[in-house]
Design a protein around this nucleic acid. Structure first.
Length: 909
RNA sequence: GGGCGUGUAGCUCAGCGGGAGAGCGCCUCGUUGACAUCGAGGAGGUCCCAGGUUCAAUCCCUGGCACGCCCA
């Protein structure tokens, strides 16, 4: 026998092992079944599970389990991403505590340390995912740094390079002065800060006392100014264009140029130009032929290109010093408080600097074209569809993608540079899959003997650069952006570039489930890579789910202290409760506002289900192998079958449209408010009665309904359903996870039976309402007398008298020609007037008031219908069915009104 | 500045061209052989505002107000 409440912890442990060991999570490339594939967005190897993961993985698991039960060969491909910068930082922090450093260790030793760390501490999320009941094919788990995936990365790099889509370029990049690497635009956050706007006077050359005023939020960059720009049509400055200013503190003579970038409306209308340290200025500088002078080093301290006094000074210290020095020279015109946004590295959280470097770039604009086309053509579809705009917007404005990173952890760029006579990398690199191939290629092209130097190798004494007898090559020390390997995930995990059966069967995949914040980072890049290398989209649907927020809509963050930990919730309420909560709150286009109250509510739902099953077992309900839901005779059983079919269809439709909340609510509603509230109550008298045939049929029907229900609920609440399935005769051999999704035909719906039992529930409900409003004690059984009942009502009453008496707490039900209404509570059951003769119980005045209130309501309704039906336009233009409906309703209301008026009159006799 | 989205019960949110809904909270009553993690009943709404389209608008359109997010 079941305990009184469900104990999740034990069941969760038990079945996760059972499932995994039974191979239920496995896909089967050899099976003839149609594939259904979801690529799990690989979480960071450094991360731990948060509520956002819980949501996205729950939804993926629902889809996977559902399709698996529907007969598909389901592959949910799990894995992790190596998170270059994040992982390197983690290990560097450990090293720092040991008094060591990456540089001190050297590249090889450092990488060994990272791998050690990964083996011991990495991949937390994968382990935590099991607590949620996630059912990916763990045996196929992949890591972006695996040998196979690394091969795919090199192959893509080499191919893109060969095709001219991967190239080296010198541009400004977002430089992170803390992590010492370039980062992509997407890894930069604009942070609003309270800063200052400093206005400086730059003296014009050869014109004593003439100054031109410029403003900046970053005074230290003035050391690298190489021009001052004014708008070509700004009358104030026409005469100065072509002249020069003498840059204070530096003494450099820099031109005043005309460029539309200068906005006459802003400040003085003149703007200082620092091409080496500002993206806009870089463009101005290029247009106007200005010099590019880099004044910052990799730490964003002032370098040797600036006057000696400032060299080595940190950027913020230099800022203060320069302001002070200019003020001393009388060149500081004014200082304004200024709120503006400053780009920060999203990993380091320090202000980034635009910095001039050589990096590898992908020609994203070229790759974006087919990727946009595919969405335009509907070969890939976003759900909800409005996210397509976000995708298009970004794709249209796409910039060259800087893919090189100045760190060690990641896929080292497969490019080998010849060394010049000084031992520095020079000229065009040889790009190849392997060192040997690079060497062979270099020998072929240079016609000389070639030797590859490792990172640590000294430059040999006989190195003469390209002129020497032997040319030495050294590999590019940089690694690729982590997203570069993630972009290949939908095919690299399936074995590409090898032509594997998996690749043939599972690509293109079906659905990608992810958050909107990842559309640029990842979805767009997978689209580009998939189309370019596989010739097809990586998935036909992208389901974009919401962000999880706290109960008040605040983003969860550690600093706010409003984080809800999914594992903690699982422990306290069970994984099924958390899953069901997240699903029930996953309405399209709205964020998930999670609170513990909601989880508690759905925990109660699980308990309710548990107790319904408990009832079944206590009453000897057992599945009947020969049971045919189309052949039941009892009306309540027909009703239960019909409602089950409707629930199943509701879930099917909702899932097909990715309306997870609708699926959840269909199941919740059916389980609680139909199965538990009514069907179980209807079944009780039968099961406890002595009509053996009815008993057997009802028992079999309940079992059938319960079993369908467990199937339908399984993708949403896998643990409790699997446990109940076992308790309920599922048997050791067959697990729900591999069970068959209910496919129930419309033919099983008996509309007459449905209407009849719906009438019973409505009747009981109305009697209960009157009892409640009249304060009839719950226990008191009272008689019900009916007058004016038609044949149908009489027949229904007759057939279901036992049920109605039992559930409405009636001592008897009698149909009479004329009932005594004095001092009785009265209600309408369709055409009949029913009375509860409660003279000694009820308060006459209260009953009169109640009836009067009902009357008023009906009067209002009738007036509303009359207004409509009195409108000729409505009668002429509205569909006939609508007019009829209004007429019917008006007639019903009027009939009810008459009976109630009559009842009111007869109340006192 | 551009774009997307949201304003419906105390709270969190479904819904929708023709009868205002759920969960939680609140109030009343209840120890019946599944279940107090429960049962029965109830109160509670200018569907943000103003126009327009329509026979009919909470729903469609326009404008406004408020809020949220993304991009610059």
């Amino acid at each position: 026998m079941l305990d009184k409440t469900f104990n999740p912890a034990e069941v969760e442990r038990k079945f996760y092992d059972v499932w995994r060991k039974s191979g239920a999570f496995r896909c089967d490339p050899d099976s003839p079944a149609k594939p259904f594939t979801i690529m799990m967005p690989p979480p960071n190897v450094t991360g731990s599970l948060h509520m956002g993961h819980a949501l996205t993985f729950t939804l993926q698991d629902v889809l996977t389990r559902h399709k698996r039960m529907t007969g598909y060969d389901a592959l949910w491909q799990p894995g992790m991403d190596h998170a270059g910068i994040a992982t390197q930082s983690v290990v560097e922090r450990t090293l720092a505590q040991e008094g060591s450093s990456a540089a001190g260790l050297g590249r090889q030793a450092f990488l060994e340390r990272v791998w050690d760390w990964k083996e011991q501490s990495g991949g937390t999320i994968s382990r935590q995912l099991t607590h949620l009941g996630a059912s990916p094919d763990w045996e196929r788990e992949r890591f972006t740094m695996d040998a196979g995936l690394s091969k795919a990365v090199r192959r893509v790099f080499v191919e893109l390079h060969r095709q001219g889509l991967m190239y080296r370029d010198q541009r400004l990049v977002n430089w992170d002065p803390k992590l010492h690497t370039a980062i992509s635009d997407l890894e930069v956050n604009q942070v609003e800060v309270d800063g200052k706007l400093w206005h400086f006077k730059y003296p014009v050359e050869g014109e004593a006392d003439t100054h031109i005023m410029v403003a900046t939020t970053r005074p230290e960059t003035m050391l690298g100014d190489t021009g001052v720009a004014v708008h070509p049509e700004d009358p104030r400055y026409q005469h100065l264009v072509g002249k020069h200013v003498i840059l204070p503190l530096v003494g450099r003579r820099i031109p005043i140029v005309a460029d539309a970038w200068a906005d006459p409306e802003t400040g003085s209308g003149a703007v200082k130009i620092t091409p080496a340290h500002d993206f806009n200025d870089f463009e101005v500088g290029r247009r106007c032929g200005l010099e590019v002078i880099n004044v910052l080093d990799r730490d964003a301290a002032i370098n040797e290109n600036a006057p000696e006094d400032y060299q080595g000074m940190d950027r913020f210290k230099a800022r203060k010093q320069i302001v002070a020095d200019l003020e001393a020279l009388g060149l500081l015109a004014k200082v304004e408080e200024h709120r503006h946004s400053v780009p920060h590295g999203d990993r380091s959280d320090v202000p980034i600097e635009p910095w001039l470097t050589n990096q590898w770039y992908v020609d994203a604009a070229t790759l974006a074209k087919p990727a946009m086309q595919a969405v335009q053509d509907g070969r890939t579809r976003f759900v909800p569809s409005n996210w397509e705009n976000v995708y298009f917007e970004w794709m249209r404005n796409i910039q060259p993608w800087c893919v090189s990173r100045q760190i060690w952890w990641g896929h080292q760029i497969p490019a080998w540079y010849p060394l010049d006579a000084e031992g520095e990398a020079t000229g065009d690199p040889f790009v190849a899959m392997t060192e040997d191939e690079a060497k062979a290629e270099a020998e072929r092209r240079l016609g000389k003997s070639v030797r590859i130097l490792q990172a640590e190798d000294e430059v040999p004494a006989d190195n003469r650069g390209l002129d020497g007898e032997t040319v030495y090559l050294r590999r590019d020390p940089d690694v690729l952006d982590t997203w570069f390997s993630s972009a290949l995930w939908p095919f690299s995990t399936l074995g590409w570039p090898d032509e594997t059966p998996e690749l043939a069967k599972y690509y293109p995949t079906d659905v990608l489930v992810t958050g909107f914040d990842i559309i640029f980072f990842w979805v767009a890049r997978m689209m580009m890579a998939g189309l370019h290398f596989m010739g097809d989209v990586p998935f036909h649907t992208v389901y974009i789910h919401a962000l999880v927020r706290d109960a008040h809509g605040q983003k969860m963050s550690k600093s706010k202290g409003n984080v809800i930990d999914p594992l903690d919730i699982c422990q306290r309420y069970g994984a099924d409760s958390l899953r069901f909560t997240l699903i029930a709150l996953s309405a399209q286009g709205r964020d998930v506002k999670l609170s513990e109250d909601r989880v508690e509510g759905y925990r109660n739902f699980a308990t309710k289900l548990w107790n319904a099953a408990r009832f079944c077992l206590m009453n000897g309900v057992e599945p009947d192998p020969g049971f045919d839901p189309g052949k039941v005779g009892q009306t309540v059983n027909k009703w239960a079958v019909a409602k089950t079919v409707r629930a199943a269809h509701g879930v099917d439709e909702a899932l097909a449209a990715y309306r997870f909340n609708d699926a959840a609510s269909a199941l919740y509603q059916f389980t609680w408010h139909q199965f538990c509230d009514w069907y179980v109550e209807f079944a009780k008298p039968i099961l406890q009665g002595d009509d053996e045939a009815a008993k057997a049929e009802t028992s079999a029907t309940i079992a059938w309904v319960m079993q369908r229900l467990l199937h339908l609920l399984h993708p949403f609440m896998p643990f409790i359903t699997e446990e109940l399935w076992e308790q309920f005769g599922g048997g050791e051999g067959s697990r729900l996870i591999t069970g068959s999704w209910p496919e129930l035909g419309e033919g099983l719906i008996d509309a007459d039976a449905e209407a009849e039992i719906d009438w019973v529930t409505r009747t009981i409900g109305e009697i209960r309402t009157v009892r409640g409003e009249m304060n009839v004690p719950n226990k008191a059984e009272v008689p019900l007398h009916l007058e004016g009942a038609g044949a149908t009502t009489k027949a229904r009453l007759d057939r279901h008298a036992t049920l109605i008496r039992r559930l409405a707490k009636l001592s008897e039900i009698r149909t009479l020609d004329r009932v005594d209404t004095r001092g009785a509570a009265q209600l309408l059951i369709d055409e009949a007037t029913a009375v509860l003769p409660l003279a000694e119980i009820i308060d006459l005045a209260q009953e009169r008031q109640r009836l009067q209130k009902e009357l008023e309501k009906l009067d209002q309704e009738i007036a509303k219908y009359d207004k409509k039906l009195g409108n000729a336009d409505f009668l002429n233009k509205a569909p006939q069915a609508v007019v009829e409906e209004q007429r019917d309703r008006r007639a019903d209301a009027a009939a009810s009104r008459e009976k109630l008026a009559n009842a009111l009159e007869r109340l006192v006799g």
